[in-house]
Design a protein around this nucleic acid. Structure first.
Lengths: 215, 215
DNA sequence: GGCGCGCTGGACAAAACGTCCGCGTAGGAC
DNA sequence: GTCCTACGCGGACGTTTTGTCCAGCGCGCC
């Protein structure tokens, strides 16, 4: 498994290559390992590249300056965003040369996008998955209004027109509790079903809401 | 973040430490990184130990001989089993010394137990989840919006922000078909759920209605 | 006949709805 | 890099719906 590198002869590549390869081997296609030339700001070698970068390309490591202060020569982990939307967790490490000073920079980028998907799936498990809920909506709410009104009317054996004020109030209450008034253009429909005016429905509704404030 | 090591002065530790630390930093408590002295079969340093091993302990690396042949000095990944049942994926790499010969061995052990749990959970998803009883509509149309959006998003393993235009259009279509937009104040809620503006939702809605006029 | 209650339609203000447009910008072509 | 296109955004705006108010009126009752 050779890295994409034109600098095979560079001693730093020879030195760090096994370590980089080990990481690549363990995490397969999810990680990209990049070895940078600290001095020339170039990519020395790259394993499993996620972008089109290759050895010799500029490193664009200037960003390291702006990152949280290094701990023992290690930056991060910090988040990176690829242009295609993938989300990476990244760390960088300053690798010492023979003189003890930094000679190379190691960057490990971990594509956590699949994990995001899995995490979403997992957290969604907390809430039960509703299959396709029955078509309560569309035109059904009208029917629902008529059902509620019809049931009420039947229960008292009167026609709508004969219902007295309290009964209408109660009926509006039932409709409200069924959520009918959360639907657009519901009031006129209810008014018709109740054989009453829009005004009256609003009055009853206000009265009901004043009585049962919470809902 | 210092490794558990009594060999701070060993030049090999100084050299490889940043790289080991980088790996530890990225994968947090899930990985253990061990640097071995190839010659003396001793642990040189260990980061985030999962067992009680520490620097100076015998390495017990004899097993490497029995592993699949190394590729470019890298062994594995192979599976290890801890006594407490945890399952590790591991790789080992022969790290070259200044003379080019091996001077140290790097082992990275990744605790995949949590992933096994997640995988089991995930595959269990294939089995149908008991549908929950259909709720009366009342206030749950909001929840419905979130369910539909959530299901859609999960199906593609993207988060809402990254859905492209067509996907959003389709999603709005589903919401429309579910009758969501028949509810008062639905558009702002949908906009929020979609992480889009009210305008955008209306645009998509218009587009959808132009495409599927009857419904 | 006079009174009170409640419903009514109409008028009107407020809120929600839906449309439009200019601007910023991300992404692609060159 | 520059240009270009397409898209999403927020704000402005006109329209529709909503909700409130009121004067008038029917009806039962004293």
């Amino acid at each position: 498994m050779a890295p994409a590198t034109a600098s095979r002869t560079d001693p730093r590549v020879a030195r760090w290559s096994p370590a980089c390869q080990a990481v690549t081997a363990l995490f397969g296609p999810s990680v990209e390992v990049v070895l940078h030339d600290a001095g020339r700001d170039r990519v020395l070698a790259i394993w499993n590249p996620m972008t089109k970068r290759e050895a010799g390309d500029p490193s664009l490591l200037g960003e390291l300056d702006r990152l949280p202060a290094a701990v023992d020569g290690v930056f991060g982990p910090y988040e990176k965003l690829l242009s295609d939307g993938r989300r990476l967790s990244s760390v960088s490490a300053l690798l010492p040369g023979d003189d003890g000073g930094p000679s190379a920079v190691l960057c490990i980028n971990f594509d956590r996008t699949p994990l995001d998907g899995a995490a979403a799936l997992l957290s969604a498990l907390a809430a039960p998955v509703a299959p396709r809920p029955a078509a309560l909506f569309a035109e059904d709410w009208r029917e629902r209004v008529h059902q509620i009104v019809g049931a009420y009317v039947r229960a008292r054996g009167k026609q709508v027109e004969r219902l007295d004020r309290n009964e209408r109030l109660a009926l509006v209450g039932e409709l409200e509790d069924a959520g009918v008034f959360a639907v657009r253009r519901a009031v006129p429909v209810v008014a018709t079903a109740l054989k009453a005016s829009r005004s009256t429905v609003y009055t009853l509704l206000a009265e009901h809401r004043a009585t049962e404030p919470v809902r």
